[in-house]
Nucleic acid binder design. Structure first.
Lengths: 105, 105
DNA sequence: CAGGATCCGCTACGATACTG
DNA sequence: CAGTATCGTAGCGGATCCTG
């Protein structure tokens, strides 16, 4: 088993908001920057952009720029990014099965 | 979809080495501290212990202490922790399918 | 609207030395 | 062997201001 491979794998997902972003994009398909901002209350612009850039760099998220006067940028999961969602769903299921009470202590 | 739930979920797995630890424990069943140390070259004792403690606190890993003169402590996945492995496997599969070349650039 | 530029604080990580 | 203690650092995350 390539345990060392998981490092690189998970480093792409490390980041306080990446999963949240991915879930929102998976849930709603395509979102503009401001929509993401509103969808994720706790995050600041800088961090949001930062995480988006990293996700983009890693090929998980795609960024579509519309060259308009009021700027419009849309984010969505790449095909590959979408393929990760089953895994995340499993992860969610798993957390839901936590024995000692699933309260977020 | 509980996108906010994923935050708490993944925060348990955040940590440079947690996944690696989990994979090793899943792979080899039970490991002593020194064995984990050797299995994971890049990690320092302090961090390794730290991550183990957090995993233990979150109920993912179980710690078995044998009160002996040469101390012996074994770590293994809890039943719940083992249930996470399918998800991690999916995640690994997913990373293996990376389109733009799965090199860790 | 989208995001660049700064400054700032925290904590996760890392290396090393020491101990029961 | 399995930790604890201490110190140092980089980077992430956060807030705020500014711009095309």
């Amino acid at each position: 088993m390539a345990a060392s491979g998981i490092e690189t794998a998970l480093r792409m997902l490390e980041g306080r908001w990446k999963m949240v972003i991915i879930f929102h994009l998976f849930d709603r398909g395509t979102l503009r920057f401001s929509e993401l901002e509103r969808a994720i209350p706790g995050v600041s612009q800088k961090v949001l952009i930062n995480q988006l850039r990293e996700l983009e760099k890693d090929g998980i998220v795609e960024r579509q720029v519309y060259p308009q006067v009021p700027p419009k940028v849309e984010y969505k999961l790449s095909a590959w990014g979408e393929q990760m969602c089953p895994a995340l769903d499993l992860l969610l299921e798993w957390t839901a099965q936590r024995p000692q009470g699933n309260a977020e202590t």
